[in-house]
Design a protein around this nucleic acid. Structure first.
Length: 303
RNA sequence: CGCGGGGUAGAGCAGUCCGGUAGCUUGCCAGGCUCAUAACCUGAAGGUCGGAGGUUCAAAUCCUCCCCCCGCAA
């Protein structure tokens, strides 16, 4: 099949690679290169890099609203559009242009977690499972009819990073299956709908008044981006791992309870930080960090 | 020229401003001690101070160039 691909980050690149191996990808749409990294160099998206390696033409329109952009899209005369984390709204004209419309790889078990950050929100919410839904796109936000689903369990070790990687592989797999078998669409259930808001940078600042359990989930949900952190004086310390401690405390949330990074949280709970990174330093286990640095018992971290 | 931190013993750090014997904590090894603790005591090993030049009687420290790691920002 003649496929036009639309996507931007790693998960989309994985899907693109898989599809390109079995189908003719005639063009890849992705977000334009953005300044990133230490020199603020212009960096192409993961999809652009992959597409170029595969010799697939790349287009990076800022928006799909303009008639000429839509005309270019239609001129591809694709059989089908495959969309995965593209980051742009697809106008009806674009959705309708390919002969078979557009399919979307969405990283949740719809209708739960429609929207931008389904992977992270599922972990934060303490869901037992996540997954992939392949759907026929319509004009709504992740409201299209479902074609195929796959489930991935969320465990105490699940981070947004490793869940993302699993979902990328699963998503690629399911999309290939969908293209091969074209299963009949089922409408999404009308109950169980939730929305996964975009992750905002501010959310990464740890709020010690939350329960230890919630903070621990947040830490996993925000890894590898944007990474949960707290401030100690003017120093920013990022937290990559923590364990909920069974002890109860009546200390004010944010109070350091011992010399080994046990922090009082909301509701009398306590969280032990296990993997951290000081600004400019490497990520290290608490054990190593504490050899040359201390967060003294009794310190009150800002909440 | 986006802003900034860092590279010193296996690990984590101090020392650099103000040049003069290579330090701390921890780990490892040996021994002792304890009902017990991330236990405690004693002793020992372990370092081309990221690299190359330069200045100097003398450089981890001052000057020049280079390599590598990381935070912010996006």
């Amino acid at each position: 099949m003649k496929v036009v691909f639309m996507g931007t980050p790693d998960i989309a690149a994985t899907v693109l690679k898989a599809i390109a191996a079995k189908h003719e990808v005639i063009c890849a749409y992705t977000q334009p290169p953005r300044p990133a990294g230490k020199g603020l160099k212009l960096s192409p998206s993961a999809v652009q890099i992959t597409a170029e390696q595969l010799g697939i033409p790349v287009r990076c329109p800022i928006s799909l609203r303009k008639p000429e952009v839509q005309a270019e899209f239609a001129a591809l005369k694709a059989d089908i559009g495959v969309v995965c984390a593209y980051g742009l709204i697809l106008p009806q004209a674009v959705l309708d242009a390919p002969r078979l419309g557009c399919l979307n790889v969405h990283a949740s078990l719809l209708p739960r977690w429609r929207g931008a950050a389904p992977i992270q929100r599922a972990i934060q919410a303490g869901d037992a499972e996540s997954g992939i839904t392949i759907m026929q796109m319509d004009a709504g936000l992740d409201t299209g009819d479902m074609l195929l689903k796959g489930v991935v369990p969320i465990t105490p070790d699940t981070t947004a990073g490793n869940l993302h990687d699993q979902l990328a592989v699963l998503g690629a797999d399911l999309m290939l299956k969908t293209l091969a078998e074209m299963p009949s669409p089922t409408p999404q259930p009308t109950d169980g709908i939730t929305y996964a808001d975009k992750i905002r940078k501010e959310e990464a600042l740890i709020d010690w008044t939350k329960s230890a359990m919630q903070i621990e989930r947040d830490i996993r949900a925000f890894n590898p981006f944007p990474i949960a952190y707290f401030m100690h004086g003017s120093e920013r310390i990022r937290v990559f791992g923590a364990e909920v401690e069974p002890t109860r405390t009546d200390a004010v949330p944010g109070t350091v309870l011992d010399d080994r990074l046990l922090i009082a949280c909301g509701g009398g709970t306590a969280l032990r930080l296990t993997v951290l990174q000081r600004a400019g330093k490497k990520i290290m286990p608490a054990e190593d960090l504490l050899k040359g640095w201390t967060l003294p018992k009794g310190t009150r971290l800002a909440v």
